[in-house]
Write a protein that binds this DNA or RNA. Structure first.
Lengths: 344, 344
DNA sequence: CTGTTAGCGCATTCAC
DNA sequence: GTGAATGCGCTAACAG
């Protein structure tokens, strides 16, 4: 138990403790403690003196020790299915930034789309955080509920009653997308699905179906292996044999994959095929710029953080269900089914 | 100090402590503690019994408390300039995954490219981690050195002696890129720079200059505001007035921006301009597929984690400098300066 | 406004 | 092998 942090030198400067500051400042440890946690109850002069001494000793409160005593860690955990998926980073950034302003730290977990890993992460983390934000959780409802019994939770893109959640309602935008296609003259549309456990995927698929019905279009679904560029590319085979001239993809990555696959077959977008993405993670950064269902996913990060804090502060809870709408952003990957051919 | 975690019900299941397990299993707290930290010193039967009781009580060791006593948090921090930049997520994912296998948790900090925020994050985090990985740190050398005096550090893309570091040597690939351009017949090349504080940027710029000299090409630099699509787009003005027919961009995002900006002026790639990116974060997911300097950035994540662990375990340190090479991946955005025009 | 006392949950000497 | 103390660094009553 002695010499915990190695010698001096690098990588292990032994941090000064509250006692050392207290001694050096000739006050009690409590006083030092209060200077750093509730300064309003301490006289101006002593505050200054303690601060002075602390600074020159390089003292910094030990959050772990503090947590042990208060039960408040000032840490939160953020779990996502895959950090590398461009949909999540903006959310992560926003949440972390929001946390930072309140001096909270955030643990990041990436489950690799695996419910099992997600569960492990959650359990491992649960001891050192005050609450967690589960983004697009792949866990089963029951697992989440059980977790919720002993941990403050906020969900993103997962709709479970009694748990605060922020939902990115892609239905609205997806409906617009179908309408847009219909207006262009398309009579059929294909939805290229995403991860099976995904709430967003289910929601989008439903929306496409509903929209298609409303506009008397035929609708089919193509199962995509994963939410990736490669998977999208591999779908073109199926799309082509299906004979559709318009597809709505689970997300922008898949859409880009489809476009690339099409290009590989000398088919171009939007002349030969209209392609619509989802999430708008690529912005206009594609060529041609992708028509897509845009959302304010960044806000999902800050809002979910706020929700978590609200929950932590007020123990009385109403059933918060924060829905963020989406809308279609028409860029250059959609056209009428005849396309350029019409000009011939 | 009582009732720290609220009532029972949701969001605050009061976790069982080691004492409760001890009592229920009719052993001492020490025994329970040992069962979970050094089972080899406990008899088989008691291990089983304690485990049994613990499981049914839902007991899990409190890592924060444990850390207080041992000084080992089993947490690390990972700081990046911007989570939303596609270069970092794969590194983050790899590091987190590596950590996960050893039951370590990772704090994520995104500094928004600001040295000031980075410093704050680092100081805030330093108390609850055993070590930190600074990726593309924007801090000054002195700040890093100072930090290194009291914290175990590993650097990624930052070359400071005596601190373990993994460097993605884009010089090799960048040199290839210039050679490739020269071979295509280009006599001039422009480098579109990235963040000023970036080690990688400095390295790339140097490499372009060296390569240009070697191939007797003229070389100019265009200052780009940031490492983003938009910034790249805004550079085309400068590129065009400069009269170059070949550019090497700081990264793929900037390159994509340039291509888009060009497209906006009815100029196409590679016919009118050869464009080379860096980092290969977009893979072949662009249209046309981007010629770029590829690296194994994913490995940077796992390697840096390993380096950190090595450092933590063996206090005797050699000066580790892990260099990962890069190479040019020729896809479809480069051509001879005459390009299609040659056919006319 | 400040010092004293006690304890958060756990790992760790020592004894046995 | 196991139990009884002691302390990690800090906050929270309780007095004064």
């Amino acid at each position: 138990m002695k010499d915990k942090r190695g010698k001096s030198g690098n990588g292990g400067g032994t941090r000064p403790t509250i006692s050392q500051v207290a001694e050096a400042a000739a006050v009690s440890r409590s006083t030092v403690s209060r200077v750093f946690s509730r300064p309003e109850s301490i006289s101006e002069p002593t505050i200054l003196r303690v601060r002075e001494v602390a600074a020159q000793l390089g003292y910094t409160p030990n959050h772990a020790a503090r947590a042990l005593s208060t039960g408040r860690h000032r840490n939160i955990a953020l779990i996502v299915p895959d950090v590398a998926n461009p949909f999540f980073p903006p959310i992560i950034a926003a949440a972390q930034e929001a946390a930072e302003t309140q001096d909270y730290c955030v643990f990041l977990g990436s489950s690799g789309e695996s419910a099992e890993r997600e569960l492990k992460l959650v359990e491992r983390l649960s001891g050192q955080v005050e609450g967690m934000i589960l983004v697009s959780s792949r866990l089963a409802d029951e697992q989440i509920l059980e977790l919720h019994a002993r941990q403050s939770l906020v969900l993103v893109n997962r709709d479970i009653e009694r748990i605060p959640r922020v939902l990115i309602d892609s239905a609205a935008g997806t409906l617009e997308a179908v309408a847009h296609l219909a207006q262009l003259g398309h009579r059929q549309v294909a939805y290229i699905s995403g991860p099976s456990g995904s709430w967003s995927n289910a929601q989008r698929q439903r929306a496409v179906r509903r929209g298609a019905a409303r506009h008397k279009m035929s609708m089919r679904t193509i199962a995509c292996q994963a939410a990736s560029f490669e998977a999208g590319r591999e779908c073109v085979e199926a799309i082509l044999t299906m004979g559709t001239r318009a597809v709505i993809a689970f997300d922008d990555l898949v859409a880009q994959g489809v476009i690339a696959g099409l290009a590989g077959r000398k088919l171009s977008v939007p002349q030969d095929m209209s392609v619509i993405g989802c999430d708008d993670v690529l912005g206009a950064a594609t060529i041609p710029p992708l028509t897509t269902v845009s959302n304010c996913s960044v806000d999902a990060g800050s809002v979910s953080y706020r929700l978590l804090m609200d929950k932590l502060e007020s123990h009385v809870q109403s059933d918060v269900r924060y829905v963020m709408s989406t809308h279609l952003v028409v860029r250059d990957t959609t056209d009428s089914p005849s396309g350029r051919a019409a000009g011939k």
